Amino acid sequence: MCITFVKTARSSFDKYKLILLNNRDEQLFRPTQEMHWHDEILSGVDEQNEARGTWTGLNRNGRIGMMLSITQTQDSKNPDAPSRGGIVNSYLKAADTSSMMNKLAKDASMYNGFQLVALEQNNHGLYQLQTLTNQQVNDISICEWDDEYHVISNSPPSKPYQKAVHGKRLLRERIQESNKMTVDQIFDELFVIATDETQCYPDTQLQFQTQNTDEYNRPLSAIFIRYPEGTRQYGTRCHTLLTIDNENQVSVLERRYLPSESTWQDARFEFVLNRN
């Protein structure tokens, strides 16, 4: 499970071109490298998967990719499916993102459930959001979304989990005055959202996709996931926060959970996007 929150600027007069929050939900002890620069990509790295992929990454030109799974039952997964882990890196390195995503759409049925969230600036310097989803949809195709606020989780945007609906309300409330806010003020508000433990349950879409019990589903129905102690070693283990202002100044904060120490660790990055 993961969930992504995005606010895109409506005009070049907005203070921030992009405001983003991503929660990564995963096995708490899955080997993971912290966010760092590698091969011109800023991201964390999943060390367990041979693809050494990521869930959220960006490059120096401001292209951003996020990988969300589409929740499915264990017995419906193909154990021989190719890894989804490297898809974000492929998007960030692509010379032509349209060609890359069109090819991915053709090959998408080979993979277990996934949803690529792709963000790139258009000719006006504003961010355009696209998604490519391979399950729970009638047609595997690239979708463009023009709303100002977007919240996407582990179901298609057209079939949102209730926590995504709840999260969109929170996002609107918390950062609607973003033009008057500093980066640190925005990050403070995003952390309020990132750590929201409201269980949005029952959720018929979540139940349909998991085919599991209420005890299993209830923790998953919250933005911040944590199972009761002594049950599943699974939950929210990383928050990625990002702003890009109208001068192309990028601010990124990763807060990751260190389960062996029961603490959270921050990493902060500041840079200016390359001029194309």
Rank of each mutant, 00 (worst) to 15 (best):
G85P: 08
Y216Q: 10
Q121Y: 00
T213P: 00
W145N: 04
T204N: 12
Y149F: 15
A267F: 13
V183N: 13
L170G: 01
D147L: 05
V151Q: 02
V137R: 00
E261V: 10
F114P: 07
E50C: 06
D188P: 08
T73E: 09
N112K: 08
D14Q: 10
Q72N: 09
L171E: 08
D203F: 02
L258T: 11
K106L: 15
F187T: 03
G62H: 03
Q33D: 12
H239K: 05
N59E: 12
E215F: 11
F5L: 15
L190Y: 10
N23R: 09
L21M: 10
T97S: 14
Q135M: 11
R84M: 03
E50W: 06
Y234C: 03
E197C: 11
M100V: 06
D147P: 01
A194C: 11
A222D: 05
Y216K: 03
Y149C: 01
L170H: 00
D25M: 07
L42I: 01
T231P: 00
E189S: 14
G113Q: 05
D196P: 13
T263P: 02
D25G: 10
T240Q: 06
T204L: 12
F187L: 09
L20H: 02
A81N: 05
Q27R: 07
V117M: 04
P202Y: 04
E197D: 10
D184W: 09
I64D: 04
P202E: 06
E50T: 12
R63S: 12
V117N: 10
Q249K: 14
N112E: 10
L58C: 14
S11R: 04
L21P: 01
S153H: 01
E47F: 08
